[in-house]
């Protein structure tokens, strides 16, 4: 981790989905975080916590209708949220790239892999014909796809899931972006392939010096990869800390619950699992208190009086009125 100027500075980002004849839904609410050059940042949370929407807002990929985006996303002195659409197109794929969740559906089924790789090079680096093809071949072999010349001519359905995700990573890294956003890149893959893909991302990010924003619900991925971790719940960041501090001592009861819910191999046989009680849909509106309160084992009276503020405590940010203490065992009810 370096202490230079942040590459990406997300300030007070909020995303609201409005529907005709329905209540509007605030999916992301006052989210702020920074990504420094070369840093790997984890955004962690359950489904529906707003982590994917955050990344799509940064990329400018949210639908234009029915969505209100507020706050600032500073990148290179530009605010990505107010940038003209064509300028944003120049940045996407060249300076900021993204790898998505499902490699099965993220590739165009009727276009050969080769064209889907070279089109990025043609768009941003003015490579054409044989030069572009050679560069694409090089990219595929760098992400560990054997026999790249043949693979370039094939269609997505002829590749396995892991291969497809490798191809998508090759496309994302084609123009050596300074920031890569990976949105649950391993969720749709076999467990054995997951580790390979994470390892590949780690290597490539180290080689190119790119920053990485890793969006995941898998704390194992975070533990092996990220420098800084932001835990999201119901559209807000509830705890931010360095990886070591977070794993050594989670302070927010939700973080604690996430860590406790990971099954352990060294636990005695037949020991119960420790899920977080309730479901992410049992939320309180943030305006009325802590959204996690309905599921929280550490809940105290003031939790439901109003939104708890995000406070800096000992090198981390925490949004909790009654955090887990230094010595307290992680709640396991």
């Amino acid at each position: 981790m370096t202490n230079s100027e942040p590459l990406l500075d997300v300030r007070d980002l909020s995303v609201t989905f409005t529907r005709k004849g329905g209540p509007s839904v605030r999916a992301v609410d006052g989210v702020s975080f920074t990504v420094r050059p070369g840093e790997t940042v984890g955004l962690v949370g359950e489904s529906g916590s707003g982590k994917s929407v955050t990344s799509l807002a940064v990329m400018g990929l949210l639908p234009r209708r029915g969505v209100q985006v507020g706050g600032q996303v500073a990148f290179d002195d530009d605010d990505l949220l107010t940038l003209p659409r064509d300028r944003m197109r120049d940045i996407r794929g060249r300076d900021i790239a993204m790898v998505f969740q499902d490699p099965m559906s993220s590739l165009n089924p009727v276009v050969p892999i080769g064209i889907q790789v070279t089109e990025v090079l043609e768009r941003h680096q003015d490579l054409k014909g044989d030069t572009a093809r050679a560069a694409a071949e090089d990219l595929l072999s760098r992400v560990g796809i054997p026999d790249p010349a043949r693979r370039l001519k094939e269609y997505p359905h002829q590749l396995s899931g892991g291969m497809r995700q490798r191809a998508l990573i090759a496309m994302a890294l084609a123009c050596r972006p300074r920031l890569l956003i990976a949105d649950e890149p391993t969720t749709a893959l076999d467990v054995t392939i997951q580790a390979q893909i994470i390892e590949l991302l780690k290597e490539l990010v180290q080689d190119t010096g790119a920053s990485l924003v890793m969006i995941t619900h898998d704390l194992g991925v975070v533990a092996g990869l990220c420098d800084t971790v932001h835990v999201m719940y119901s559209g807000r960041i509830v705890e931010s800390a360095g990886r070591r501090e977070l794993f050594a001592q989670p302070r927010h009861p939700y973080t604690g619950g996430l860590l406790a819910s990971v099954p352990r191999l060294d636990a005695p046989r037949g020991a119960p699992l420790h899920p977080i009680p309730g479901s992410p849909t049992d939320v309180l509106r943030w305006s009325r208190g802590c959204a996690f309160a309905p599921r929280c084992p550490n809940r105290i009276e003031p939790c439901t009086d109003g939104p708890p503020p995000l406070e800096s405590i000992g090198g981390r940010s925490l949004r909790c009125l009654n955090p887990l203490t230094e010595t307290e065992e992680v709640a396991t009810r």
Partner: peptide, 24 residues
Amino acid sequence: DYVRTAEAKGLWERTITRRHVLRN
């Protein structure tokens, strides 16, 4: 999803329309 991938690559709108939307 593949149209979103194409958008994420920063391709021009006409490329996305022709190659990724219309062909499918």
